[in-house]
């Protein structure tokens, strides 16, 4: 058989949709566990947990490989999906004057392409809002904890503000701003001796908190868009999860009911958990 069949045959295209789709489902779980760091702990502890997690995600080689597989999966799933949809439209040049598809199929199953397109738009804006800023453009402020060292009024010493930088060694490092320089955005070097003193964490926790806060004038808009997108994702998964198994030929009366149940539970719980997090941030 020709090699191109692996990409071109109708069934092979569906295998790719199923495989990339299921991989992206596992990605959702990983992403959700990360997001939960935003709300499981509060205050400095929560900020530290999330920023350390974000640093780990950006520096672990396995995570880096996985993230590239994720980018490729998203692109492949979308491009393949558009191609399939285009072919499917072509397969029926003339539509029915009167059609009653509600009698034989579920709503999400018939609108996978539209639901998927909305999810894609969400992913693009989501990456522009967070991924692009964190990785490429903006200088994200480092994780700094301000403390006030009490002075001695008897001796005429006022209270002194100090900035403690959280470093990757796990310690807070006091820094005199005029004695250090920052390299590669996060590395802290002694100005005089050009010695690396430590590496700070990008304070992505604060970026997220500000993004979805009431102080952000567009915070509510972002919040609504996020929650609606998660609703759309839920519908997409409602059909997609179990559908992927069917496409891969995994079907048996013993385990298909379990797959269907897990698929629907996944479709409800995962987007719900995602959506609750920015709502909690906004409501603080």
């Amino acid at each position: 058989m020709s090699k191109s069949a692996i990409l071109k045959s109708s069934i092979a295209k569906k295998y790719w949709m199923a495989l990339t789709g299921l991989f992206l489902c596992t990605f959702l779980i990983g992403h959700l566990l990360g997001n939960l760091q935003l709300v499981l702990k509060t205050g400095e502890e929560g900020r530290r947990a999330f920023n350390e997690y974000a640093y780990f995600m950006g520096h672990n080689i396995f995570i880096k490989i996985l993230s590239w597989v994720t980018y490729i999966s998203i692109i492949f799933h979308a491009v393949d999906g558009f191609m399939l949809t285009f072919q499917n439209k072509k397969a029926r040049p003339q539509n029915y004057a009167y059609n009653n598809p509600g009698a034989n199929s579920s709503l999400p199953s018939r609108y996978m392409a539209i639901l998927g397109t909305v999810v894609l738009v969400f992913i693009v804006t989501h990456m522009a809002n967070f991924w692009w800023k964190a990785k490429v453009t903006e200088d994200i402020p480092l994780h700094v904890k301000e403390i006030v060292v009490p002075g001695n009024p008897m001796m005429g010493q006022p209270d002194q503000k100090m900035e403690l930088y959280l470093t990757t060694s796990g310690n807070y490092m006091p820094i005199q701003k005029d004695q250090v320089v920052f390299k590669n955005k996060t590395e802290i070097y002694d100005k005089t001796f050009d010695i690396k003193m430590g590496e700070g964490y990008k304070d992505l926790h604060t970026v997220v908190m500000k993004f979805f806060s009431k102080e952000n004038e567009l915070g509510l808009v972002y919040l609504i868009f996020y929650v609606v997108s998660m609703g759309v994702l839920a519908f997409h998964l409602w059909h997609g999860f179990a559908s992927a198994f069917q496409t891969l030929g995994v079907r048996h009366k013993r385990y298909t009911p379990a797959i269907n149940f897990i698929g629907k539970a996944f479709a409800l719980l995962v987007p719900l958990a995602f959506a609750v997090i920015p709502v909690m941030i906004y409501m603080r």
């Binding site: 109708s10 069934i11 295209k13 569906k14 399939l84 072919q87 499917n88 072509k90 397969a91 029926r92 598809p101 034989n104 199929s105 579920s106 199953s109 018939r110 996978m112 059909h239 559908s243 069917q246 496409t247």
Partner: peptide
């Protein structure tokens, strides 16, 4: 023959 692709709607 120009048939479309299956999307498992079950119709």
């Amino acid at each position: 023959e120009g048939f479309g692709n299956c999307t498992n709607t079950g119709a």
